[in-house]
Amino acid sequence: MVVAAGCAGCLDGRLPGDQTDGSASGDGTATRTYIVGIDGNYYPFSYIEKDGQPSGFDVESILWIAEEMDFEVIIKPIAWEHIIPSLEEKRIDIIYSGMTITDDRRARINFSTPYRVVNQGIVVRADSGMTMDDILGGNAVIGTQRGCSAEAWIRDNLVQAGTLPADRLVLKDSIQLSLSELMSGDIDAVMYDEPVIAWAIRDKPLRMAGVVETNEEYAIAVRKEDTELLEMLNEGLDRLMRSSKWQELIRKYGLE
């Protein structure tokens, strides 16, 4: 059985003390239950529906894996900047929400087999004359979500290189806030994971200026010590990616 519980009150990263050591099933055996942390505003991978229920490509993936591998999950939305600390502090057990593998993150947590490769998209206002040369040449104020891989790329490749003054990088708590600032004219461009930002601008007066090929790998994350859990997730992910369900989800969420 699978439990999927939205938790709007958990968006700031403060989670209740859920127990994850298993609950009694009808036959007297213990059912393993794991708390899965997601970004609740990460369309189309993980998000919260209007009725408060979690949805998205990654959400449906972990629900399939849980059923296949015979465990339960409780899905909790958490502000992205709090998600790794929440894992380390054992407030959640798994991160499954388009997390990019990086060396800094590898030093703190373990990753599954990668399940998707993405690049960084840069968007501007539809009527903007800004080009990729302008943006990557340091002639734009760039926004993105705090704590994401786009921030790391901008810092490593533009700010530290002296191309972009540090005060021209504007960070917000969500990509939606960054896009709002772009539409209001407070910033010139927003950089974020390409499939997510392409989804986010579909009904907005914004356009894709271009893509930076970063070839980032998405993977599931667990604590360093949870080796058995990681092995189980890798097995479940492998089964999912070899099943017809995988292509069904790719088509459903427009990730072809």
Rank of each mutant, 00 (worst) to 15 (best):
E60F: 04
R242I: 07
G13S: 06
G210A: 04
I75H: 04
A30E: 12
F71Y: 09
S23R: 11
N234L: 06
R223F: 05
V117R: 08
L136C: 09
V196I: 13
I95Q: 06
D156P: 12
Y192A: 14
G138M: 00
V124W: 04
P195Q: 09
R207E: 08
D238F: 09
R91F: 02
T33V: 15
R108P: 02
A4F: 03
D58C: 12
V36F: 04
D186N: 14
V190A: 00
G210C: 04
C7S: 12
F71C: 02
I135Q: 10
S128T: 10
G137V: 06
Y42S: 09
G121E: 10
Q145H: 03
P16S: 06
T29G: 06
G26S: 14
S46C: 09
P85G: 01
V141E: 07
I65S: 02
V73M: 02
D58K: 01
I62K: 06
S25V: 11
Y96M: 15
E181F: 14
R125I: 08
W153E: 10
S112A: 03
K90N: 14
V2E: 11
T20F: 08
M191L: 13
L169Y: 06
R207Q: 13
S174F: 00
Y192D: 13
S178A: 15
D39V: 13
R155E: 13
S61K: 09
E217M: 08
L229C: 07
I175K: 01
A107Y: 04
E225N: 07
Q247K: 08
L229F: 06
I75P: 02
G37K: 05
L169H: 09
S128F: 07
G98C: 05
R105A: 14
G22K: 08
G254L: 05
E72P: 01
D18S: 10
D238A: 15
Q53S: 11
N215P: 02
A166I: 13
E235L: 12
V59H: 03
T131D: 06
D12F: 06
D93G: 01
K224N: 11
D173R: 14
E67F: 00
Y218R: 03
M69T: 07
I197M: 11
Q19G: 09
C10S: 15
P44R: 00
A219M: 02
K50A: 13
D173I: 14
Y43K: 15
Q247I: 08
I92E: 11
L169V: 11
Y47S: 10
Y96E: 14
Q120H: 14
E89R: 12
A4Y: 02
T102I: 04
L237K: 00
G9P: 03
L229K: 06
D51E: 06
P16R: 08
G137P: 03
D21C: 07
S23Q: 12
E256P: 03
L233E: 05
